[in-house]
């Protein structure tokens, strides 16, 4: 397929409480396989998806957080985290398990306006 669109995935939900974070990641990987321009955005509780040190043995659920580190291998390098969301949760960039670009709310809004397709789960 020759058409390339700008796809943005907006993640605003925490992992494990609901399945959305995991299933969102699956769409992201497929979208990259279609050679689309992919951006991932983490806002609100979505920033918890990237928290280092997730230990899921006690809840008998697969820890899917290492997959965020594998995104680079699929040429998905545009990961954006909202500054205000990190601060509101007592987190900083050092708490995250992958390299991201931290944006202010206003910058995030401007980035949304540039997209062709916005998917949120």
């Amino acid at each position: 397929m020759s058409d390339t669109k700008k796809f943005m995935f907006v993640n605003r939900k925490a992992p494990y409480g609901t399945i959305y974070a995991l299933e969102s990641l699956e769409v992201v990987l497929i979208t990259a396989a279609f050679d689309q321009d992919v951006s991932l955005v983490f806002m609100d509780d979505g920033v918890y998806q990237l928290k280092k040190g997730q230990q899921t043995k006690g809840i008998e659920t697969k820890n899917f957080s290492p997959a965020y580190r594998a995104l680079e291998g699929y040429d998905i390098e545009k990961l954006y985290v909202e500054q205000e969301a990190l601060e509101a949760r007592g987190l900083s960039e050092d708490d995250l398990l992958v390299d991201v670009t931290v944006l202010s709310r206003a910058e995030m809004g401007a980035l949304m306006d540039e997209q062709d397709v916005v998917l949120s789960f």
């Binding site: 397929m1 669109k5 796809f7 769409v27 497929i30 979208t31 279609f34 689309q36 397709v117």
Partner: peptide
């Protein structure tokens, strides 16, 4: 079918609207 069908809809359609 697979998730590729969702991505294809995003590419082919003029508008994609999500309900959830």
């Amino acid at each position: 079918s697979g998730l590729g069908q969702l991505v294809e809809a995003g590419i082919q359609c003029d508008r994609l609207v999500t309900f959830g």
